[in-house]
Amino acid sequence: MIRAEKLTFDYEKLDETGQAVSMKRAVDGVDLEVRSGEFVAILGHNGSGKSTLAKHINAILLPTEGTLWVDGMDTKDENRLWDIRQDAGMVFQNPDNQIIGTVVEEDVGFGPENLGVPTDEIWRRVEESLQAVGMLKYRKHSPNRLSGGQKQRVAIAGVMAMHPRCIVLDEPTAMLDPHGRRSVIRTVQKLNKEEQITVILITHYMEEVIEADRVFVMDDGKVVMQGTPKEIFSQVDRLKELRLDVPQATLVAYELQKRGFPLPDGILSNEELVEELCRLKSKM
């Protein structure tokens, strides 16, 4: 579905006359493959290059070096630009700055309008997408009166209405409260499972990646860890070094391991930990 090979991107810093004065390598030789239908999370700090990487998938940025293919289309191929953007939809961080319509349903219709979809079909798609994100009853509302989480779900519906095969979400929850955060993640998970949409979720919240199929951890423009959530979170020391969050259940297990209790690696949830602890206790 998506494949990157030695993807590198440099930001140029320009002075007042437009001359490049310095370069900053934001993405540094990233190889990555995402299969169709997968839920992939990219975890990393601000400035780790994860958002820059995300913008390549939608061909908003083009690689300085290396290549990125979306569904076999090279993002550098200008003739396929709109196909790529339709195929790989993008949801951004700030909910206010990506809603164009003044009524929810009009905003969801914006993408299909741009694609030249016939009017009847637009209405069908708008209804479907709003239904899929659970916002149908707000279709006549003004976006300004919605909560942050609701706005993000409208933005997701706006992308869904373009019938993409893949959605890239660039820190969609960074500006939301826990409640909104959960509703957005749940929506994305549902789309992944029920509509088989490939999801690439960029985030710095670890609790959002626990249910992903695979996790990539980025630091300083490079992919420094990759694997299943279990594999990633069993390396508590490495994560602490990167100063990323670890689930509290994992941390408690880690603390107990340090005190000599034989607990397995990669415990992610309370349920698992409780089970392991009871087993351990019965053996003692």
């Binding site: 689930p247 509290q248 259940a249 603390e255 309370n270 409780v274 602890l277």
Partner: peptide, 26 residues
């Protein structure tokens, strides 16, 4: 999260202090 952890343990019959609020206390 640890609050819920301690509570689940207690429900399973473990004799633990349920007031723990940080990872270290837990």
């Amino acid at each position: 999260q640890v609050t819920y952890l301690m509570k689940s343990l207690k429900e399973k019959g473990a004799h633990v202090d349920v007031d723990a609020t940080t990872v270290e206390e837990a």
